[in-house]
């Protein structure tokens, strides 16, 4: 486990309001290079909002976030950070008008300025890695949910991100497809990718995560190694939440 203090993400006292809803109420979090963090917590506790603040899909009202030395303040910096941070969504969000291959090459070509051949090679390598090289010419809607999510992971990886964010990547999947996506994520974690994963897949957390975090009501309530947090929670709110999820 990498535990020297070299945070690639530094989150300081983040607050976020949606109208009268105080969705994040002062979050502090450092993510180390190569660390895998799993975030759990009840619905509406602010998990997605926190993740979306890290690549500025959501603006925050107060506090600061520094990603790989780049503060999230100006428009240029935000785009710079976004190219370093890959994101995988619950609903996959593949581009339905483009083939799988074009989904994975589009941003490479217009953002990374790779030529067609190079982008193509990178894409095929990644589609191999996620186990569906044979679907390159298909359109997203012709694929199963699990396959779509794996393409979405490949699409994000094609930008060579230093950090990957996952927002409930398996919640929209049929049970039999969950494992194929988790396996890809597990491989990534083993390769040393920095990952922040919102997920209630306890098996994945135990196998891959360095740290598990419980959020409730816009705050980080408790954090520890997954085994410790799941088996010996200290806070009442953690116990209450775990008893619901594990039952």
């Amino acid at each position: 486990m990498i535990m020297q203090s070299d945070p690639i993400i530094q989150i300081n006292n983040i607050h976020k309001h949606f109208g009268s809803v105080h969705a994040l109420r002062g979050i502090d979090l450092d993510v180390q290079r190569g660390e895998v963090i799993v975030v759990i917590g009840p619905s509406g506790s602010g998990k997605s909002t926190l993740l979306r603040c890290i690549n500025r899909l959501e603006e925050f009202d107060q506090g600061s976030i520094v990603v790989d030395g780049i503060p999230l303040d100006s428009a240029e910096n935000i785009n710079a950070v976004r190219t370093e941070v890959g994101m995988v969504f619950q609903q996959f969000n593949l581009f339905p008008h483009l083939s799988v291959l074009d989904n994975v090459t589009l941003a490479q070509r217009i953002i990374r300025k790779r030529d067609k051949k190079e982008a193509h090679e990178v894409a095929m390598e990644l589609l191999n890695k996620v186990g569906i090289p044979d679907k390159a010419e298909c359109y997203p809607l012709q694929l199963s949910g699990g396959q779509q999510q794996r393409v979405a992971i490949a699409r994000a990886l094609a930008m060579n991100p230093k950090i990957m964010l996952f927002d409930e990547p398996t919640s929209a999947l049929d049970p039999e497809m969950i494992q194929e996506v988790l396996d890809v994520m597990l491989t990534l974690a083993k390769e040393g990718m920095t990952m922040v994963v919102v997920s209630h897949e306890m098996g994945f957390a135990r196998a891959a995560a360095d740290r598990a975090i419980l959020m409730d009501d816009g705050l980080i309530v408790e954090q520890a190694a997954p085994k410790v947090l799941f088996s010996q929670p200290k806070e009442e709110r953690t116990k209450a939440f775990l008893s619901k999820v594990l039952s």
Partner: peptide
């Protein structure tokens, strides 16, 4: 077009 499409594009670094 679902909002997720814009978000996915932006998260890949597109302006």
């Amino acid at each position: 077009i679902p909002k997720g499409q814009m978000e996915a594009a932006r998260s890949l670094g597109m302006n």
